[in-house]
Design a protein around this nucleic acid. Sequence first.
DNA 1: GTAGATGCAAAGTATTTGCGACAAG
DNA 2: CTTGTCGCAAATACTTTGCATCTAC
Lengths: 136, 136
Amino acid sequence: MSETIEQKCIAKGVKLTDQRKIIAKVMSDANDHPNVDELYNRVSKIDSKISIATVYRTVKLFEESGILTKHEFKGGKARYEELNESHHDHLIDVKSGEIIEFVDEEIEKLQKKVAEKYGYDLVDHKLELYGVKKKS
Amino acid sequence: MSETIEQKCIAKGVKLTDQRKIIAKVMSDANDHPNVDELYNRVSKIDSKISIATVYRTVKLFEESGILTKHEFKGGKARYEELNESHHDHLIDVKSGEIIEFVDEEIEKLQKKVAEKYGYDLVDHKLELYGVKKKS
DNA sequence: GTAGATGCAAAGTATTTGCGACAAG
DNA sequence: CTTGTCGCAAATACTTTGCATCTAC
C-alpha cells in the first residue's frame, strides 16, 4: 500500500481539519468514482453536519494539490477518484454505467508521439471508451 | 464538398425553420468549435431576434440527429462542431486554447482492441490531448 | 493568536422548460 | 389545419462565494 490521502495532505502542507479527514477517508475507501453528491452522502453518514460547500471546496483543493483527479464523463456530473502512481484510462459501459479501468502503454506512447508531431509537449490527456457488452 | 447541414436535416426529416437554417449556416461556416454563447453571438448578428433557448434546443436536436457533435473539454462550456465522415480527435493548447484536429489510425485500432479485450463493442470514444508548445 | 476553514444562504453559471403565440408542411 | 417551434421568463442543476464564526497549528 502507498501513502494515504492524509499523509499526502501533510506532505503537501494541506491543513487537516476533521472534515477533510473524513472526506479523505471516504475517498480512500471508495472503489468507484463518486460525484460530489454521492461523496456528500457518504460523508454525511459519518458527520451529518458537514456542508456540501465544504465537500466542493475540499475536492477542488485536493484536485489542485494533486491528490484527487476529476473526470467529466459524458453528460454526467463531475466524478472524482484518488490519484496514485498508476495512471489509467476508463472504459464506460453505456448501458449500466459501470466503469472499467485500463492501461495501454502503446496508446500512451502514441499519444505522446502525436503531440510531438504537432510540436507540443503532452501535459495531460483524457481517453474514455464507451462500449456495450458483447452478446457473443 | 459533402452535404450541407440543411440537406442533412431534410434527409433526417428535421423540420427547417428560419432559425434552424441560420444556425445550420453558422455552424457550416465555422472552422472552430464554438460554444453556445459564441454560436448565439454569431447567429444574433444575422437575426437578432433568435433567442438563446432556441440555440440550445437546436444544437441538442442537431446532436441527437447526428448532425453536430458535442465536446466537453476540460473545465469549459460545451462546444459543438459539425459531424462529418472524417472522424478526428483533438489536441488542445492549454495556454492559448487553440484546438488542433488530428487522426491516428493506430490509436483508433488499439482502442477497439482494448474494448474487445474486456468484452465490449466500442460505440463511442473520447480522446483529448492537452499540451504546451515546445520552446525549441 | 492568527491565518485559514466551515456552515449557511445567497449568488453565479449553464442549461432546460412551461406556456401562449406563431409558422412549416 | 395541426403539430411542432419560438420567444420569453421562470425554473433547474451544479458549483461558487460573502460573511460571521470557529479551529488547526
